[in-house]
Design a binder for these strands. Structure first.
Length: 816
RNA sequence: GCGAAAGUGGCGGAACUGGUAGACGCGCGAGACUUAGGAUCUCGUGGGCGCUGCCCAUGGGGGUUCGAAUCCCCCCUUUCGCACCA
């Protein structure tokens, strides 16, 4: 009898062995084979079984690739800058770096205990100067090319933390950290000109055939390209005043009955007549005080709010003056901040017109029986002079051409995408490498003075705002141009900058004199398989695609896209003890399953098997304790097969049973190969469970050699999923070394092709019998066997048609 | 509101291209071994009926087809994304 299965005894031993043998080490000086990558994590310290999902999936694929003899680059690192470290510093008076490094150590240990292998020689932590200096270097290159700029823009500002916040740091209009209501402020900030790449980011999506459609749709919507026309509206009686409006429906211009400016529009002051200025002033002030979030929120029916300016603008198509309003539904940040309002064809304009008693003129004929309000679909133009009778596409084209020919307007493409605001008034990030000189203005820090390193003489807590501003040693700088005293920029970069190019650094993490080693990167990029959560569908993946295109334009990387295949794993949910519903694991929901206790009781292999078995990895699945037990039972049965193999050693066995075991074995090899190739370890595991069921069924009748062969094959197939137990049994069976070097099993296709097949026999589409036949049986022979099997259904009927699908089914269509 | 994805036993899920629906696991039932077992092993397990057999079943309703979980149309539900984008 084998000893009982005791994961505690075996797992750490194999973890040490794998690390010692450096199975994951790859020399990128050599030729590329495969580059796979999991999105590098923020080192928060605490990992739960939900986090484990994508790392375990990645490790499963990695081990399979290794066994198949491939050279796979599979690195891991840390997205190590960010707010939580700084908050921890304030709360617990520990330096962010110390806190971060401690978390990294914990997480690394967690990976080890999960049995996950990475090429740790290539580890990167983005908070280290040797990494972030290249953020700075790249920033300066982009500054040179005009791709980075300092500009004024309304931004989210937390009055209590005294910093700009990213949109994702604003939760329901409030600061995620302190809960203060976030304000909109016009501030000078650093931006990257991602809008210049909008069309390339959009077109590139079409070529990403191995990305989830969902992610591509989200990115397309985010970029929000729209084609239209922009034209000038003159203010009636004021020859000096005119503004531009943007529309996607120039064909409806004859139906314009008013115009609307955003309340922040620069012309508001000039346009407002004295008798309306009090009202306008009140309105503008009111809008200014509401945050963008409130303004755009649409709980229930939206009330369109606005005010008349007292002025009129001339519709260039008709020469008619129309009243100019201000309204909060027109945003300064989109298009020109001014629109022509055509209530007949636009629902928002319709509602506004109704609310303020403005005229409505239809310029597109709705179909008979139309009962809605604004009609936005296609139809012949009406009330539109020389456009009358034309349909939408043609009418848009004519109207646009008319604007161009008369010098009033032009074709224009607009995007919803805004430039990327990268400034953060925070300590724990990459310092933006510029200084402000009284004489020379904004001066980038020259390359030989990089990196601009974060100072360590920092007091966290106590006072508010960016601690960098209070560091005299940091802010005091000399101007690289004139050598006089200058002030150093204290903004740091958005951490998405770090994660936008780290995948290229992994190929050559220690190159000192360059951001990347171009030769190696040219060979190893792009990443062949990128695994991560769908929560990064837009931000990270859009920024990374943008910066990769920039690097491409700098001649530094091959191709235009960094990630060939994107795989989004689904969440693991569990019943929340707070809400009682299934929710994503989190401490606040009280539904976190910590791996430590689980591993202590059942072992890491059990967690891995269960994680991979519970459902297809791209789907959301529920964690249950019963399911864990099932996975553990499976491993115990695998362990117990040692006895069956030992007892049957030397037995000749019955040929039929032996054959069944061997056929099942080959069939399993094929299924596991196919299932893992399409990232379905759940069905691969099921196939292996079937194999052990078959082995158990024939444990006392099959030959000893067949049982042993099947067992050893099973161990190899199972290794990527349950690496520790399989290595241990492999060793017990008398093999040296590691399963990772034992090769991946192949199957005997001919043997499988020779097996009897079961034909389904249908009569009028209903299953009436099944017959076992030789494979490849021709139609006539199959028909005669099938006829016999369903004779009672054919009796007295006329067979009008026979459909034969070789080796699958035969169907009789009968009448009478 | 718009867009996308998904709805299969008591539960998680199989069924890859229209061809035997429910693999595998959980749970449940019966039995075995046990002083005992929430351990282990074996067998059974969609529903119904006149039970060697047949009928009904993949959210609901229609359709195409010899044949539909799979394709088409309408509706319902859930989840996710976007949400005044001119």
């Amino acid at each position: 009898m084998a000893l009982p299965y005791d994961p505690q005894q075996i797992e750490s031993r194999w973890q040490e062995f794998w690390a010692r043998e450096r199975f994951a080490a790859v020399d990128t000086a050599g030729a590329k084979d495969l580059y796979m990558l999991m999105m590098f994590p923020y080192p928060s310290g605490d990992l739960h079984v939900g986090h484990g999902r994508n790392y375990i999936l990645g490790d499963c694929l990695f081990r399979m690739f290794l066994m198949q003899g491939r050279q796979v680059l599979n690195p891991m690192g840390w997205d190590a800058f960010g707010l939580p470290a700084e908050n921890a510093a304030i709360k617990r008076n520990i330096h962010p770096r110390e806190w971060t490094l401690a978390n990294i150590a914990r997480m690394k240990d967690q990976f080890r205990r999960w049995g996950i292998l990475y090429d740790w020689d290539k580890e990167i932590a983005s908070c280290e100067p040797e990494y972030y200096r290249w953020n700075q270097w790249l920033f300066n290159r982009m500054l040179e090319k005009g791709l980075a700029y300092r500009g004024k823009s309304p931004v989210n500002w937390c009055p209590s933390c005294k910093t700009v916040l990213a949109n994702e740091q604003v939760v329901a209009g409030a600061c995620e950290r302190c809960g203060s209501i976030v304000e909109q402020r016009d501030l000078e900030q650093w931006f990257l000109r991602i809008t210049e790449y909008a069309d390339r980011l959009l077109e590139g999506l079409d070529r990403l055939t191995d990305w989830p459609e969902k992610v591509k749709v989200m990115q397309r919507n985010w970029i929000g390209r729209s084609e239209g026309a922009e034209f000038e509206m003159r203010v009636a009686g004021r020859d000096d005043l005119a503004f531009q409006v943007y529309t996607t429906r120039p064909d409806t211009s004859f139906g314009m009955t008013f115009a609307v400016l955003a309340p922040e529009h620069p012309l508001v002051g000039a346009i407002t007549t004295p008798d309306h200025s009090a009202e306008v002033g009140t309105f503008v002030e009111r809008v200014r005080r509401t945050t963008e979030i409130e303004r755009l929120s649409t709980e229930g029916v939206v009330e369109k709010r606005g005010v008349f300016t007292g002025s009129y603008a001339v519709n260039p198509f008709t020469g008619t003056p129309v009243p100019i309003y201000l309204a909060d539904y027109v945003l300064m940040s989109y298009g020109t901040g001014a629109i022509m309002a055509v209530p007949g064809q636009d629902q928002r304009d319709w509602e506004f017109a109704k609310a303020y008693g403005l005229r409505i003129v239809r310029t597109v004929q709705p179909p008979d029986g139309w009962v809605g309000e604004a009609y936005v679909d296609d139809g012949p133009a009406i009330n539109s002079q020389w456009l009358d009778g034309l349909y939408k596409t043609e009418a848009i084209e004519r109207a646009t051409r008319w604007l161009e020919e008369n010098g009033i307007g032009r074709r224009r493409v607009h995007y919803r995408l805004r430039d990327w605001l990268i400034s953060r008034q925070r300590y724990w990030g990459t310092p933006i490498p510029v200084v402000y000189c009284e004489r020379d203005g904004i001066v980038p820090v020259p390359e030989d003075q990089l990196p601009v390193v974060l100072p360590t003489d920092i007091q966290f807590g106590g006072s508010e705002g960016n601690p960098l501003e209070r560091s005299a040693s940091f802010t005091a700088a000399t101007c690289p141009k004139c050598g006089k005293a200058a002030r150093r920029e204290t903004d740091t970069m958005d951490t998405f900058m770090d994660s936008s190019w780290y995948y290229a650094r992994f190929i050559n993490p220690h190159v000192r004199d360059a951001m990347i080693d171009r030769g190696r990167v040219a060979r190893w990029m792009p990443v062949d398989l990128y695994i991560g959560g769908v929560e990064h569908a837009i931000l990270h993946l859009m920024y990374a695609r943008f910066l990769y295109k920039v690097l491409h334009d700098f001649g530094m990387v091959p191709g235009e896209e960094p990630f060939t295949v994107l795989f989004n794993q689904g969440m693991i949910t569990a019943k929340s003890s707070v809400s009682g519903k299934l929710e994503k694991m989190s401490k606040s929901k009280g539904n976190v399953v910590a791996p430590d206790a689980l591993i202590a009781r059942y072992g890491a292999d059990t967690e891995r098997v269960y994680t991979l078995f519970m459902g297809p990895p791209e789907k959301e699945v529920e964690w249950t304790d019963e399911g864990v037990m099932g996975a553990h039972r499976f491993l115990q049965r695998v362990w117990g097969l040692q006895d069956i193999v030992a007892e049957s050693a030397g037995r000749v066995g019955e040929p039929a049973a032996t054959e069944q075991v061997l056929v099942a074995m080959h069939h399993t090899v094929k299924r596991v190969r196919d299932d893992l190739a399409r990232y379905h370890p759940n069905t691969a595991t099921a196939a292996m469970m079937e194999l052990i069921n078959t082995m158990a069924q024939h444990q006392s009748s099959a030959s000893g050699s067949a049982l042993r062969e099947a067992y050893e094959t099973l161990l190899r197939l199972l290794h990527p999923i349950a690496p520790h137990i399989t290595e241990e049994i492999w060793r017990i069976l008398g093999h040296d070394g590691s399963l990772l070097r034992a090769g991946w099993p192949s199957f005997d296709a001919e043997l499988l092709a020779k097996q009897q097949v079961t034909l389904a026999v249908q009569v009028n589409g209903k299953l009436r019998a099944t017959v076992d036949v030789e494979p490849g049986l021709d139609a006539r022979a199959a028909e005669s066997v099938a006829r016999a099997a369903v004779a009672k259904w054919l009796d007295g009927k006329t067979v009008v048609k026979v459909i034969h699908v070789p080796d699958r089914m035969i169907s009789f269509v009968v009448r009478g």
